[in-house]
Design a protein around this nucleic acid. Structure first.
Lengths: 223, 223
DNA sequence: TGCTGGTTTGTTGTATACAACAGAATGAGG
DNA sequence: CCTCATTCTGTTGTATACAACAAACCAGCA
């Protein structure tokens, strides 16, 4: 493989840092500091940040600074709705087009999720969960849709991360995956779409619950 | 409104130029020439081109040049499929959420399309057609989905342009729109989704036909 | 003639300096 | 003490120069 340019190296590093929570939503990204950290000038940093802005991960306020994207409840709801619909499409196409090998891999990923859920290794489950979804994107046999799905997935990852720590969420998430896998194995595209849409939408709802709980921790109600 | 930066001015100008066909798919975009044309240095040109690459309109081959995106039949089919699914989502959501005012505007646009179709003013129909679709995106009341739909729409515009010149296509396109409008007015989300998906998919198919015809235009059969 | 090696040329990648701008801090005047 | 104009500071936007690289080209040789 050809040596990658500094710009893409930095972009990928920042992408990971944001997705893994090192930079939280709303955090400021200082070009000068980053230039120092990556041992280069501000130009490739600038390019990388612009690319990240295009993909929706960061936002640059002119003359004010560059920040990790942070959305209000409404914007988040919009994105979760979009994600649910895209994932539903993927599930539907996958149910029709998945190959034997791809199905085997999907079920292997699913089984790995079961293990991690049982052992309550949340961080690892979180990673394997992404792989599970990526499997389905791939099985659409539509590279363009798969790429778009990956992009949206990355965009929401920081929030999903918080969300998975809700009580019992991991176990339920696994059960919902089961429904999706079954529908895909049966080639039932409508059922697969519905199961997947519900799976993602419930994440959005749960996230909403979590936000509400966090916000009302002062006035009343149990924390 | 605040004065926009050179970069976004150039990006929008190039976007229009590509969408309107001034730069055909595959055409080379020379930064130096563009810098001269827009009376600025290469930096904002470069930024604009990078943004266009992120949105999928152009493609930069390292050390070789920057070109207007050009897709082979398979890639085009993938994109038309994606477009069909996204548009179907928009139609479905619009059928559930459209307001009285928005419905009125949609029907006005539709009526304008009828006029232009009757008068066989293809170029104008083409513009009004985009507005019609944009109306539906807007009526989803989901800004994020609407924006993504617009992006995809722009990406495919150069190809749709060619496609609309197929014989009788304009009239048929109008009829398909009619089905969508009716379903949305009735609040029948499933029917709206189906009508819209078919409408876009048939574009993809027709485009395929066109390509095939163009390719075998010299003599009939092997070159 | 065909191949191989170096050279040339065009392109992007990167560094750096400066200009322009928005918001914050500061000071004078009421 | 409050208000408003002014200055100041930090940030991005832009220009320009140079480096690095990949493909094309050409000459020399077998």
């Amino acid at each position: 493989m050809a040596r990658v340019s500094n710009t893409v190296r930095i972009r990928e590093a920042l992408e990971n840092a944001i997705v893994n929570g090192r930079f939280a939503p709303g955090a400021r990204l200082d070009p000068a500091k980053l230039a120092e950290e990556f041992e280069c000038s501000r130009t490739p940093i600038r390019d990388a940040l612009q690319q990240l802005e295009a993909s929706g991960l960061v936002r640059v306020h002119s003359k004010q600074g560059t920040f990790v994207s942070e959305w209000n409840v409404e914007e988040l709801a919009e994105r979760f709705e979009a994600m649910a619909e895209i994932e539903a499409i993927c599930a539907r196409l996958a149910a029709r087009r998945i190959t034997r090998e791809e199905l085997a891999e999907l079920e292997a990923r699913h089984e790995a999720c079961r293990q991690l859920a049982d052992e309550e290794r949340i961080d690892d489950y979180y990673a394997e969960n992404s792989a599970f979804h990526a499997c389905i994107y791939h099985a659409t046999h539509n590279g363009f849709i798969a790429k778009e799905a990956m992009r949206l997935h990355a965009m929401l990852q920081p929030y999903r991360r918080i969300q998975l720590q809700v009580r019992n969420r991991v176990k339920r998430s696994f059960d919902e995956h089961q429904a999706v896998v079954t529908a895909i194995r049966n080639g039932d595209d409508a059922a697969a779409a519905k199961a997947m849409r519900d799976h993602v939408l419930v994440q959005g709802d749960r996230f909403h619950d979590l936000l509400a709980a966090l916000r009302s921790d002062a006035p009343h109600g149990p924390v």
